[in-house]
């Protein structure tokens, strides 16, 4: 960068490479310092507020709450995945009525809050007790946990159907035609050619959906399920100690981050053949 070329005409030229302490770096270091202060503040708070007796008393509760959260999400995701297949199929169907119904289903469950859906199932279905008893379903809906699973599965099925549909439609038509020309029938084509390619596209959205479900599942605490959030509220109401919320936050963060990295790792593994 020599200065020999300066002359009378004043030109704005691309700035020199940042050296030393440009404004951005000052800002960046400032912000990072702020985060460090904030996070060490929380760590210091937890150390100072540490209470061995409290921990012994409530830690088992947190573990069981975590178990309930994970169980709830796992069952809902699996049931939702099963349910999403016919919905996605109907959505892609050429039959107007079928695809219209599937669209309405997806629109309803994606357009309304999960909390409202959960209330609708838990308290709404509760008011049809006698009818449900007649068909023998009351035993199922009596339990808050089952109601949560019911609502969550229907909800996630709508999202998963859209993920599945998007992924399948992202596979070029030529793949179908190629398979047809080799004499594979439709199911074989779907299973052996389309789905493996579609799942690469779908992996990340599926991962996000699981993460959203884990975070969303916190609302079951409001309908009397002792999940991680429920235990947290219970502990807080017993101890009035704010650290109960901080611990929950840390546990949720750890689960979500682990999942996110796991998805990224799987994605790297299954796309090795695409890397150049």
């Amino acid at each position: 960068m020599s200065a020999t070329a300066t002359d009378a005409t004043k030109v704005d030229r691309p700035p020199a490479l940042p050296r030393g302490w440009p404004r951005q770096r000052v800002l960046g270091y400032g912000l990072v310092c702020l985060w460090i202060v904030f996070l060490t503040g929380i760590a210091a708070y937890l150390v100072l507020a540490w209470n061995g007796e409290l921990f012994r008393k409530y830690a088992p509760g947190y573990v069981s709450g975590l178990g309930v959260t994970l169980l709830l999400v796992a069952i809902s995701i699996v049931l939702g995945a099963i349910l999403s297949v016919p919905i996605a199929y109907a959505r892609m169907s050429k039959n107007q009525v079928l695809s219209g119904l599937a669209y309405a289903y997806v629109y309803f469950f994606r357009g309304t809050p999960l909390l409202a859906q959960t209330f609708l199932v838990y308290y709404g279905v509760g008011s049809f007790r006698s009818q449900l008893e007649m068909v023998g379903l009351w035993g199922f809906f009596r339990e808050a946990f089952n109601c949560a699973i019911f609502a969550f599965s229907l909800n996630t099925a709508a999202y998963q159907a859209e993920i599945l549909r998007g992924a399948i439609q992202s596979v070029p038509r030529g793949q179908w035609e190629g398979a047809a020309s080799l004499g594979l029938h439709k199911l074989q084509t779907m299973w052996k050619i389309i789905l493996p390619q579609a799942l690469i596209v779908a992996l990340r959205p599926y991962g996000n959906e699981i993460i959203l479900m884990i975070k969303g599942s916190a609302i079951v605490a409001i309908i009397t399920v002792y999940d991680l959030m429920g235990i947290t509220k219970l502990t807080y109401s017993r101890t009035f100690d704010f650290q109960s919320y901080v611990w929950a936050a840390i546990i949720y963060l750890i689960i979500v981050e682990t999942l996110r990295h796991a998805v990224e790792w799987i994605e790297r593994r299954i796309t090795i053949h695409l890397q150049r």
């Binding site: 308290y123 509760g126 008011s127 007790r129 009351w138 009596r142 808050a144 009397t224 429920g230 219970l234």
Partner: peptide
């Protein structure tokens, strides 16, 4: 033991039979 946010909700669930 099931904890409810307000008295009205446990009343609803007692009437419902939960």
């Amino acid at each position: 033991i099931k904890p409810y946010p307000t008295a009205q909700e446990y009343q609803l669930d007692l009437a419902n039979g939960r």
